[in-house]
Amino acid sequence: MKLEVNGLSFAYGQRPVIDDLHFVVRQGEFVSLIGPSGSGKSTLFYMLGGLHCPQAGEILLDGQRINGERGHLAYMPQQPSLMPWRTILDNVRLAQELSGHKDPTQLTNLLRGAGLAEVADRYPHELSGGMQQRVAFIRALASNRDLLCLDEPFGSLDALTRTRMQTWLLRLLEQEKRTILFITHSIEEAILLSDRILVLSASPMKVIREVPVPFARGQARYERRGTKEWLALQRELETMLLG
């Protein structure tokens, strides 16, 4: 799996949102997109997902041009996006129904691995916001797409739940090797989770800098928070975003 974005441009009417955007995501990488709000990150996801067609440039998945094509990636938005009339199990199954491969054992394994087996028969409104987002993430995994696009998945959670979700995600990703493109507003979250961070500018959106995260990936990284290198990196990213 390799995602290449080459010279992508997009405008809403006269207002350019994205201008000549380039980046690459390789197999197994966790890449964060960080930038000011309203900089067009969600628009970028809609383009990758085929909802919008870019006005210039191309999106290549494994060398294949997928401009305007839908169904190539798994997607998870910030807002709760579970169907209230489906149980947790049926919500996760939806991903398989849409992608057309049925695998009940994968479903039970995923739910068990995520610690959601006990709530499989509950309805979404019976679960907390954090639990609902876990289900939404599991659903993204169940669609069996190589590329997962997560649009601020923890953005609407309180700080404590957010921290729990981050460690949960780190642990889960050690078992499930996936390629992830991750939108976030939190510098700390980006450092904690990603291999590389793309720092973006607003209107029009461009990649200002590409910053590799120098800490070993996984749960161990959580312990590195607050160290000198960590804080230096955090300040560096902050300066870039403010400048």
Partner: peptide
């Protein structure tokens, strides 16, 4: 709206969008 976007991003067909999302939410 969020569910509609999810369905489209997931590559749902028009019929899937109708039968799996719009119809149950109109019940």
């Amino acid at each position: 709206h969020t569910l509609l976007i999810y369905m489209e991003m997931a590559g749902a067909t028009r019929w899937q969008r109708f039968s799996k999302l719009e119809w149950p939410s109109a019940l």
